[in-house]
Design a binder for these strands. Structure first.
Lengths: 184, 184
DNA sequence: AGCCGACATGTCAATCTCAACATGTAAGAG
DNA sequence: CTCTTACATGTTGAGATTGACATGTCGGCT
């Protein structure tokens, strides 16, 4: 359902568009939040036209078909935006990896977390650059800010986890050195 | 690949388990990070056994089959945990909704964001309760902390977005009331 | 004229996921 | 003995997604 909503929304804001245009849009800033390639988009546009949500407004050169949103399409989009209950479940490889982290030896876990903190920081820098480029209040601005905040949270979590692992490792080493009682 | 990794990891930490056991595990705290139902788990276990990652250790009453991890399975798990590059792409309905937020009239957007902030807070409270229940350093502890931080970020983002929308709405109303120059 | 890159649309097979359908056993309560 | 609940394992059909295959056009450069 999300692909439909995304396509309806894109056509709503861009005006009548071809599958090719929409594919390009999915390669732009939208790629940060949802991905779809032409092999998914073209069939979906055909289905949506068959369902009356879109209509082929114009057939141009090179077989180009321009889809426009219909009243039914606008209704469907509005319905999705306001009524449809958002999918709550997370299914995120990063979450799963965080869950399974204790399976790794401390040192290896710290290495991975360090890399992850670095990656989150890099992604944050990218998003900041994107914001400077597209301006404060461009279309995807809310999503951009959201991404930034989540990346910051991710990075801080990784640093917290590293710290925790290091402390427990120190405690362990200490215990080994002086198994009982005070040192010396 | 993630389902395989999750199943291998569960069997690694739980010891030999049946599909039924593993299905129950997916209904527990693991459900916060990854979901799988028995209709996905049973066939996957069979494939993994065929691939030599698991072996049927024991057949019990009621057709119960207990799967144990093999050396190849342990190798595969270790490989996934340490070598496999994590999937970076996000495909998250919440992100898409954030992206499309400007399509809504300000008031409606504020309503939805308010609900979202509430939902994030509720989820945060749930996770805190879970942590109190299972203890500080239980198996999923890192993922739990990560979830908490992301929920906090989500809530703060929603509040920020509400504030921003309210300010732009006030500015708009103000402009309407006094189209040019100073009031009065 | 020939070639290349961008434009433009499709199909297909494989994989993942979900909800629904389907079947049967064992244990305990009444 | 019957009923219910938990145990236990499947299959199947539909939808989502990906990567590879496939085809053809148009404009500009050499």
């Amino acid at each position: 359902m999300s692909l439909r909503a995304a396509l309806l929304a894109l056509i709503e804001v861009r005006g009548p568009s071809s599958g090719y245009d929409l594919t390009k849009s999915f390669e732009g800033s939208l790629a940060h939040v949802w991905q779809a390639s032409h092999s998914q988009i073209y069939p979906e546009l055909n289905r949506m036209a068959a369902d009356g949500l879109l209509k082929v407004e114009e057939e141009g050169p090179r077989g180009r078909k321009t889809y426009a949103i219909t009243a039914a399409g606008q209704a469907e989009l509005h319905e999705w935006l306001t009524e449809a209950k958002p999918e709550q479940r997370v299914r995120d490889e990063a979450s799963l990896r965080a869950f399974l982290l204790p399976l790794l030896p401390t040192q290896k876990a710290i290495e991975l977390l360090t890399e992850q903190a670095r990656a989150a920081e890099a992604r944050k820098v990218d998003l900041e650059a994107l914001r400077r480029k597209v301006g404060e209040s461009s279309f995807g601005g809310f999503a951009l800010e959201r991404g930034l905040r989540h990346m910051a949270a991710e990075r801080e979590w990784a640093l917290w986890a590293i710290d925790r692992l290091q402390k427990s490792e120190e405690a362990r080493t200490e215990t080994v050195r002086t198994p009982t009682g005070e040192p010396e």
